[in-house]
Write a protein that binds this DNA or RNA. Structure first.
Lengths: 127, 127
DNA sequence: CCCTCATCTGAAGACCTGTTCATATGTACA
DNA sequence: TGTACATATGAACAGGTCTTCAGATGAGGG
């Protein structure tokens, strides 16, 4: 509960209240990490493709329009974070979406994006 | 709707079916973009702090333990994407979480992270 | 066995992102 | 008006991430 920044606080009560409710650094990092895995269009496409069921690497490459190497790299990352899981059959590898939490996030995000599509006139200070 | 990658497709039906359901490139990019904004621990902390209501920049800096410059930069980004909005009062700027969609994502993510916290021994998943 | 095919991996380069330092803007108040 | 303060901005540097290329692994078929 050390402060280190309390010098110029305006609303001290709100600040400590919010600090109380703030998740631990570990939780925040963990959550940011998950969002980071969903933040790449190609990875996102892979996961969306897997929403309907398992697919092998070459089909994932075909669906998402990436090289199989890129797909493999992406799946490796997702696998390391237990977001997808692999089933092997001969020389094929079938991947499925394993993390229900991520599935929920995807559902929420996609549902809203379809509605909000037109409402994104951003592009302000960056490009 | 040409394929361009259909050479090595295994399950052609599944592939075209999934391709049908795949959101447009714009939607995917847009969604990945939103996830990207949530993928930074400091930005995430800012947004979590704003879940309870508006706060000024210096208080946000105090709550999240960042420099005010860093906070201002982060808020600028979030503002450009209409995720937060600013209310000015004198020389203070009070920011609030403006995008209900993002609020929902945060709620979902944080709820699950609190439960899943212990279950993240990220390793390479193979058997 | 040897060759092919599906997938995986490592290394390297280009690209993007976040932080910091210095400075600018603009409001309040003496 | 001039100083103090809250916030905003720009440029630059450091570190990370994604893609690609080349080669490795391991299963299946002749």
């Amino acid at each position: 509960m050390v402060d280190g920044c309390a010098v110029k606080v305006v609303d001290a009560d709100r600040v400590s209240a919010v600090r109380e409710r703030m998740p631990s650094a570990g939780d925040v990092t963990d959550t940011a990490d998950v969002f980071g895995l969903l933040a790449d269009p190609n990875r996102l496409r892979l996961l969306v493709a897997l929403l309907d069921g398992e697919l092998c690497v070459c089909d994932l490459a075909a669906v998402t329009g990436q090289s199989e190497s890129a797909v493999s790299h992406a799946l490796r990352l997702l696998r390391a974070h237990r977001i997808v899981a692999a089933r092997r059959s001969g020389r094929m590898a079938y991947y499925r979406l394993e993390d229900p939490h991520v599935r929920l996030l995807l559902d929420v995000a996609l549902a809203h994006t379809e509605h909000t599509e037109a409402i994104h006139p951003e592009r302000d200070g960056r490009s």
